[in-house]
Computed example of a mutant assay.
Amino acid sequence: MELSVQTLEGKAAGKVELADDVFGLEPRADILHRMVRYQQLKKMAGTHETKGRSDIRGTTKKFVRQKGSGGARHGNRKVPQFRGGGRAFGPVTRSHAISLPKKVRALALKLALSSKAKAGDLVILDKAEAKEPKTAQLKKSFGALGFDNALIIGGAELDENFARAARNIPHIDVLPAQGINVYDILRRNKLVLTKAALESLEARFS
């Protein structure tokens, strides 16, 4: 697959050949769904917790007589029936993360890249750099290129001026090459890869 390379000014900067085994696969919704679920569950804090019976301070001595009180035969103040008692089967601190084989995760990333390429939403940028961190100027360039909702992937290190200028623009995400992930690719309409990011991906999957 061959794609044209653009500059931030909207000018042509040559062409690049994309690997078919990375950008030419047939998208599979089931694999992408598994990967997004894996990412979302791994991100959950899991710090919600309530107090159970063992966490409540209270007497375990039988506090009413067996007969004649008109109530049930309770023998513990810490049970869930009473105000201030422990909760039965309440949430506890735990990890929500699930396991997913490394090969499946790698395949999911390839499928996400392929889905953008097949839909025509993959753009190759010469470089993501700015002379000064001016949001208005960068927003104007993005408007001319049609980047109203996009994920931009730079090289191993992001240009600081470009990253600062882009972080105030709504619906625009900028990540270094090692931060590329399936969830962020799918949540944005366009995927913009710099030539440095493309080289990094090819080295990663070679």
Rank of each mutant, 00 (worst) to 15 (best):
M1K: 04
V5W: 00
V5D: 03
Q6E: 02
Q6L: 11
Q6G: 00
L8E: 06
A12M: 09
A13W: 01
K15H: 09
E17W: 11
A19V: 04
A19M: 05
A19F: 09
D21H: 15
G24K: 05
L25P: 12
L25C: 13
P27Q: 02
P27L: 07
R28H: 14
R28D: 14
I31C: 08
I31G: 06
L32Q: 00
L32T: 07
H33M: 12
Q39Y: 14
Q39A: 14
L41W: 06
T47Q: 15
H48N: 13
K51A: 07
G52W: 07
G52F: 06
S54W: 12
D55S: 11
D55K: 12
I56L: 09
I56N: 09
I56K: 09
R57D: 03
R57F: 13
G58P: 15
T59L: 04
T60D: 08
T60A: 09
F63I: 07
V64E: 12
V64H: 10
V64T: 12
K67S: 02
K67T: 11
G68C: 08
G70L: 00
A72Y: 02
R73W: 01
H74F: 15
H74K: 03
R77P: 10
V79G: 07
V79F: 13
Q81Y: 13
G84D: 09
G85A: 03
G85K: 05
G86A: 04
G86P: 14
G86W: 06
F89C: 05
V92N: 13
R94H: 11
H96R: 10
A97D: 10
L100S: 05
K102P: 08
K103G: 04
R105P: 09
L109C: 00
L111R: 02
K116V: 01
A117C: 07
A117S: 09
K118L: 11
A119W: 07
A119T: 01
A119K: 03
G120W: 03
V123K: 09
L125V: 00
D126W: 14
K127N: 08
E129A: 13
K131R: 06
K131L: 04
K131D: 12
P133M: 01
A136G: 11
Q137T: 07
K139P: 10
K140E: 15
F142H: 00
A144N: 12
A144M: 08
L145Q: 11
D148V: 11
I152M: 10
I152K: 10
A156P: 13
E157F: 01
E157C: 04
E157Q: 12
L158I: 12
L158R: 08
F162Q: 03
A163Q: 10
A163P: 09
R164L: 15
R167P: 10
R167M: 12
I169H: 06
P170L: 01
P170Y: 01
H171P: 01
I172M: 03
D173H: 05
P176M: 08
G179T: 07
I180N: 03
I180T: 03
N181W: 02
N181R: 04
N181Q: 00
L186C: 06
K190C: 05
V192I: 04
A197M: 00
L198S: 04
L201S: 06
E202G: 14
R204C: 14
F205P: 05
S206Q: 11
